[in-house]
Design a binder for these strands. Structure first.
Lengths: 228, 228
DNA sequence: TCCTTTCCGTTGTAAATACAACATACTTGT
DNA sequence: ACAAGTATGTTGTATTTACAACGGAAAGGA
């Protein structure tokens, strides 16, 4: 448990809380740790969720495979982000997606009652935690809206450009790396891999960007405009 | 203010709170009302948001218009849902989308500090409110994920089927109405209106569904399977 | 009622995409 | 170093979609 404290300290969820206090909060909130190997399922469609989870290490993919085997990565969970919270709502039914570790990962499990039921006396940081959880879910919400803005572009080219330029903006540099391989990026953007690969190369040939594996560099007035 | 209490009473946000208590909470939290005519902009891209809003009446569309005039409805806000919460996170920048009233609407504006800062003595329902806000944001999250699951379908046909069958499931009937006209549905699903209209008619001709304006009825083993 | 406007379906064509199939480069394990 | 497996780029074709254009139906206002 203690090993995650430095990681957690840097997350939005525990921002403004000292390491010692994080540790006591983890105890106060009765957190449990679960670790996942790369490719392992944290949860499967149809399961019921009773905890609020925080990803401490690694990356998780919220994904869905349909009847015909098409895989859709609905979202990526990064360290410090919470997941599973939608299923704590009363009568929310069973999990609709799979949660898979994209790499070696560790998650903290919290009892939602202990977090949401305010106990002013027990834990001085509770108010801060509630605020931070609110911020964290809001961030997640924002990332979902962001993804929606990519996918709601009509063409593969526009999806790529909106995603890549947004990623450049987020990483505040025209050179950046993305957390996907080509297939994962195609799944994330809901397009065909080969068509996307084709479009990427066209964009490169047109001088709009360069890439090497998952490292991208955007060129040109449009992309550059972001940083001006 | 008082006129919204019966509406609010039925929302997730104030579930389990009596009408009198809702009114005192609204006062305690210093809520303000703003009303919008159909088509009016509640917020525009680039504005800064300092309040947490709850839609009391009507419908709002979170939408984005790009350089070329393509309109994307990113999400629809219904009564009892909150909006704007993503922009209360520190350093979250200005609004990236427009918020437009799809019909005559009314929204309540709350000071986020008053909601999130726990004051056990002042308002006995504060803990409940915090929990309900958590549930409400989570629900919103879920609706975003749901929309993602529609849009991430590869073809117009699949997008339509996933949306319509999900809507049937949510309304618990194979006959249901949707809150969109054709153009809005096309924007919501990020497809071309005429192509979608064409596809709808093909589905109808194949006997998979029927519709009249915004009233739909699903037929066949696939759609029926949901209710068995 | 008539006129105007909006909404919806239909069609043809140009463009984009999905899909399959394959070549090459890169990784990983032995 | 080698082999097996994986990731990526490339190409051609069938399918699907976008777009424009139009006609009829429905809705709303004068």
């Amino acid at each position: 448990m203690k090993k995650f404290v430095p990681v957690l300290k840097r997350t939005k969820l525990f921002s403004g809380v000292g390491e010692d206090d994080i540790l006591s909060m983890l105890n106060c909130l009765n957190a449990a740790v679960r670790q996942y190997r790369k490719g392992e399922y944290a949860f499967r469609q149809g399961e019921y969720i009773r905890s609020l989870m925080v990803l401490a290490e690694g990356r998780l993919h919220i994904q869905k495979e349909d009847y015909w085997g098409n895989l859709n990565i609905l979202n990526e969970v990064r360290p410090g982000e919470i997941f599973g919270e939608a299923y704590l709502v009363p009568d929310s039914g069973s999990l609709l997606n799979d949660v898979v570790a994209a790499e070696e990962s560790a998650a903290l499990f919290f009892d939602p009652e202990r977090i949401l039921a305010v106990c002013p006396s027990a834990c001085p940081f509770h108010t801060k935690l509630v605020k931070n959880i609110f911020y964290t879910i809001s961030d997640k919400n924002k990332s979902l809206v962001r993804k929606l803005s990519y996918i709601s572009q009509r063409s593969t080219r526009e999806k790529l450009l909106s995603y890549l330029s947004d990623e450049a903006k987020r990483q505040n540099s025209s050179s950046f790396s993305i957390p996907f391989n080509r297939q994962q990026l195609a799944d994330f953007l809901s397009v065909d891999r080969s068509a996307m690969s084709n479009e990427l190369c066209k964009l490169r040939d047109e001088g709009m960007l360069d890439f090497h594996k998952s490292e991208f560099t955007l060129h040109g007035s449009e992309a550059g405009g972001i940083f001006q």
